[in-house]
Every structure is written in structure tokens, then in C-alpha cells.
Design a protein around this nucleic acid. Structure first.
Length: 284
DNA sequence: AAAGAGCTCAACCGCCCTAAG
DNA sequence: TCTTAGGGCGGTTGAGCTCTT
């Protein structure tokens, strides 16, 4: 959206010394860009004066960083970026600027807006607090896997090399929990707080989930697009040590085999750190 | 076609931290 | 040590756009 088309609140009769507020004009943008091109960023109050802008230093800084800076990326967030935001927010909370450091070209303002308009909206619809364990589980169990599927779909158009990881089968909805439909099309339980489990369990699983050992092996989200119910070690035909990951509702043919030497790319708690997933997807 | 509701996102506010004097 | 200015950051607002009825 171009703010240059918005109405301007200041009148032509306003005091010349009065600071301007509201949408920036094309002329102001040009002044700011030209000044920074010549003198660089920083000392924003001084910059505002010397550039001839009747704006506060803060306003200039914000306009530059969030809109005018050449490397600012426009347009919708990609699934990868959305996934990273969800993952990093689960770790750091509302540390928007810190999260933005991991999304080149995206501003903290943009990420904050995404969180408030997309993520918080879902929580409101479900009447769940975004900081609650329930909502975190929904993100981990349904939203993130769905984004991973989208990323996988995108990557399927690329040449694949069946090397270290066996390509996953198309992710089918593995949960039959009754409830609302989230923005990614999955069905989840809107009354989740009534569940006693810490995470949403698949309704059907090839693994018996009742004993303590196997439940301790259950990870609701994984880089492979679904919950991991078991993992083990094996040796392949070439004599290489492999880690074997079993997903819910999978057959042995669907297992994911990751060389031991590569498994360090996985988070120990399978919390879907994007850098690890990115690397895994690249290697698929 | 019109009106109202809902959504998006640029911009502002106010608090906090840090460095310089 | 205290004061002050600059800058960073998270929260909030509201104009304009889009969607729905």
C-alpha cells in the first residue's frame, strides 16, 4: 500500500516550524533517500534537520527502515518465512526485532503485523490465549506441519535426489479430532483444554502409545511434516549408520532415514528450527 | 449498488537502554 | 553519579482497502 495516496492531515497554513505527522509524501521520501545516499544513516534528528525534513528523527528512522531501505522485501510472507516466525516466536515471544534478524528483508513491524493479524486472529476465534500451551500445541501440531507440506509441495517441482533422506509420502491429515478448521485446512479440537495430554495425539497410530517409553518418544512436530512416534538406529546397505524416524500412521517404507553424520541438523527436541529444516529440505 | 464489517499495514506513542558530557 | 539526547523496541492506532450481506 502506498501511503503517498493517503490524505494529508496538515494544512498549507500550518506553521513552517511545526513538525509534520502522518503519511509521507513522495517529496519527503525523495529527500530522505537522497540525504542517506550522500551521508548514510544515523544521527536521525540531525539528519531530519539537514535533509530539510520537518519530521522527527524517529519518524525518519522508521520510514527508512520499514519502507524506503532498498533491501526491504515487499509482498506476502512465504511459507518458509511464516514457519520461521512461528518457530522463533515459540522460542523468544514478542521479540520482533530479534525474529526479524533471521528474515532478511523483513522488518520487525511487518512480522508484528503478521502475528497480530493472522496468528492472534486464530487464537481469538478459538477463544484461546496465544501464550497458552494449547495454542502452542495447535501451532506445532497443525499449522507448522501444514506449512512444511506447502514447502514440500514447492520443492517437489525441483529435481530430487534419493540420497540421504527418503522422500516423504504426501502428508495426509493424520488427526480426526473434532473441531474447527484452521487457516491451513486442518481440523483441530476447539475444546482442547479438556484434553489431559500435553499435546494432541493422533487418533490412530501404528505404535501403541500407552506405555511410558513410547509416549516419551512422541514428538508432535518434526521436520518431516508429521509427529514422530519412534526413532531408532540402523545400518544401511553401504554399512553407514543411520537414524530411523517413524511417523504416526506410517509404514516401514515411509520411514525417514538420516545418516548419523547428518542427524545433527535435527534439533534434539524436533522443534523445527528452520535452519535445520532448510538444510534438510535442501539435501532431499 | 450501497453500506457496514473486517482486515491490513504504515505510522505514531511511550518506555527503556546506553553513551556522552 | 547524574542528566540528557539519541536510538531501539513493543504496543497501539486509524486511514484506506477489501469483503460480505
Amino acid at each position: 500500500m502506498s501511503t503517498n495516496t493517503k490524505s494529508f492531515s496538515s494544512s498549507s497554513s500550518e506553521d513552517d516550524n511545526e513538525l509534520r505527522r502522518g503519511p509521507w509524501t513522495l517529496e519527503e521520501d525523495t529527500l530522505l533517500i537522497q540525504y542517506i545516499a550522500r551521508h548514510g544513516e544515523g544521527r536521525w534528528n540531525l539528519l531530519a534537520n539537514r535533509a530539510g525534513l520537518r519530521r522527527t528523527g524517529k519518524s525518519c528512522r522508521l520510514r527508512w527502515l520499514n519502507y524506503l531501505k532498498p533491501d526491504v522485501k515487499r509482498g506476502n510472507l512465504s511459507p518458509e518465512e511464516q514457519l520461521l516466525i512461528l518457530d522463533l516466536h515459540s522460542k523468544w515471544g514478542n521479540r520482533w526485532s530479534k525474529i526479524a534478524q533471521y528474515l532478511p528483508g523483513r522488518t520487525d513491524n511487518e512480522i508484528k503485523n503478521y502475528w497480530r493479524t493472522r496468528v492472534q486472529k486464530q487464537a481469538r476465534h478459538l477463544k484461546i490465549d496465544t501464550n497458552s500451551t494449547e495454542f502452542q500445541n495447535i501451532i506445532r501440531c497443525f499449522w507448522m506441519p501444514r506449512l512444511l507440506q506447502k514447502i514440500g509441495d514447492q520443492n517437489q517441482s525441483l529435481p530430487s535426489h534419493q540420497n540421504s533422506i527418503i522422500a516423504p509420502p504426501p502428508l495426509q491429515p493424520q488427526f480426526t479430532v473434532q473441531g474447527a478448521v484452521d487457516m491451513s485446512g486442518y481440523v483441530y479440537n476447539s475444546d482442547i483444554e479438556k484434553q489431559n495430554t500435553a499435546c494432541i495425539l493422533p487418533s490412530e497410530s501404528p505404535m501403541e502409545m500407552s506405555n511410558t517409553t513410547q509416549i516419551s518418544e512422541y514428538y508432535p512436530s518434526s521436520p518431516f511434516g508429521g509427529p514422530i512416534v519412534h526413532h531408532d538406529h540402523s545400518v544401511n546397505n553401504n554399512g553407514h549408520d543411520m537414524e530411523v524416524f517413524n511417523l504416526a500412521n506410517s509404514t516401514p517404507a515411509d520411514n525417514f532415514y538420516v545418516p548419523e553424520s547428518e542427524s545433527s541438523w535435527l534439533d534434539t527436541d524436533f522443534s523445527c528450527s528452520l535452519w535445520n529444516m532448510d538444510e534438510l529440505l535442501r539435501r532431499c
